[in-house]
Design a binder for these strands. Sequence first.
RNA 1: CAAGGCGGCCGGACAGCCGCGCUGCGGCUUGACCGCAGUGAGGAAAGUCCGGGCAUCAGGGGAACAGGACACCGGGUAACGCCCGGCUGGGAAAACCCAAGGGAAAGUGCCGCAGAAAACUACCGCCGGGCUAUAUGCCCGGUAAGGAUGAAAAGGCGAGGUAAGAGCUCACCGCGGCGGUGGCAACAUCGCCGGCUUUAGGUAAACCCUGUCCGAUGCAAGACCAAGUUAGGGGCGUCAAGGUGCAUUUUAUGCAAACCGGACGAUACGGAGCGUUCUCCCUCCACUCCAGAGGUGGGUCGCAAUGAGCCGUCCGGCAACGGCCGGCCCAGAUGAAUGGCUGUCGGUCCGGGCUUGCCCGGAUUACAGAACCCGGCUUACAGGCUGCCUUGUCUG
RNA 2: GCGGGUAUAGCUCAGGGGUAGAGCGCAACCUUGCCAAGGUUGAUGUCGUGGGUCCGAAUCCCAUUGCCCGCU
Length: 128
Amino acid sequence: MKVFILKKRKDFVKAAQEFKVVVNGLVLQAALNLSEKAKDCCFVGYTATKKLGKAHIRNRTKRRLRAAVAMVFPSLAKAGVNYVVIGRHNTTELEFAYLTRRLRDAINEINAQIEARQQSPSEAEEKL
RNA sequence: CAAGGCGGCCGGACAGCCGCGCUGCGGCUUGACCGCAGUGAGGAAAGUCCGGGCAUCAGGGGAACAGGACACCGGGUAACGCCCGGCUGGGAAAACCCAAGGGAAAGUGCCGCAGAAAACUACCGCCGGGCUAUAUGCCCGGUAAGGAUGAAAAGGCGAGGUAAGAGCUCACCGCGGCGGUGGCAACAUCGCCGGCUUUAGGUAAACCCUGUCCGAUGCAAGACCAAGUUAGGGGCGUCAAGGUGCAUUUUAUGCAAACCGGACGAUACGGAGCGUUCUCCCUCCACUCCAGAGGUGGGUCGCAAUGAGCCGUCCGGCAACGGCCGGCCCAGAUGAAUGGCUGUCGGUCCGGGCUUGCCCGGAUUACAGAACCCGGCUUACAGGCUGCCUUGUCUG
RNA sequence: GCGGGUAUAGCUCAGGGGUAGAGCGCAACCUUGCCAAGGUUGAUGUCGUGGGUCCGAAUCCCAUUGCCCGCU
């Protein structure tokens, strides 16, 4: 599974509106991407807000998230999905192995949500 | 050894595995591809407080006004509000430190409370005279030594002098002027003179005056390529070849630009040209204006290997800095590259052990991430190295 | 990346060199059988932080921190 970088603001906004899982250290959001391009790959975007700290803290947060995604996503991510990973205040402090485990939990959870929606779309829409 | 002052410098090191940006080369399965090699954050990359380069506004000369910055002297620099050296004033026992440090004699304003008075001073007091029998008291005059107030009180201090006093006179200090000497200068120093209410309190980080400098906007500047929109409405003017209207010379000619539709835009008026106004040269503009809606915001260059560049020897200079010669090429992203894991060695702190400078264990290892590029300033910063200087104590 | 504004009592704001103020709120008392309204009285600030200028700074100057806003 190939993983590419998400760039457009529009896609970030859409991901924030559809699926969301919060774990210790990070937040994972996702949205379906039905375009031809995304048929057999997925996109990932990273977010680190000004709340986290100054520039070097935000950069470090994104780096650790990228490193974690590089370990987890190639095996677990679903094709045709835009993921967004958001850093939290303790992303830079947690042990990397723990952070990776939590990201694995988060992606399994969010994939389950997506599959549930795909199997019974009408029911899911009622929920929303 | 202790306490302190002033600089300069570093700001973890090495190795392994998995990854990332850029550049170069190679590969074929030509792509958001793979492989190899090289290279990859700071002293502040930060704050955006100054000064430049560069770019656009078509360009240039002059005058006035407005606005802003700066302000002892000399030097350095591309330039600066920066740096160096000096002067003056203030602080410290000293090494040293601090200073927006021009003009108050161009003008205006302000100086609360207190105090007689905050700038043409006179409450108490002191002295003289008068009224009154005397004292008290009152009136007139002289005075600014003393008291009191205040941040600040009209040169200070001592002596002479006087009714009491006063630069009224004199010495010293201070101040002003002239001259000599030293210094590029700020200024220092010596002498003479003034006789100081003929010396005009403070405040310019109050307005201001004087001198010097300053066009605006910032790489999201700007240049090019590609794609897309080029539609509707209102207003000015020209055209009589269509319709309409009017007139008739009666079916064609003339007039009319009011209306519908169409084709279009003047070598004149005028407008524009880097704060405002004026002026000179020069140049440019031939449709214009308004409102609403929708779309796009992609790529290349700018841009990173030639620069006020970095390193080193030597030379000049007290220094900032400059010069000769030699060597080097050193990040370039755009959802934005340095990360993850492991080991060894460091630094600092704590605890324990003892063989007293080693071992063991634990914690900690700052501030912080280039975005067009340089020169400064300012602010943040664990810990460490190093040079010089001052004072005190002890020993020789 | 560039450029502005603001910070004063619990809240909303005045004050632009000379004793820090207003409204609302708060507390006590009066009024009432009780409450509200009304009346009387009172408390309350390191003037965001650190320096400087001045005799004297919330005010002027410099630096700094937080918050808010604008352009692209």
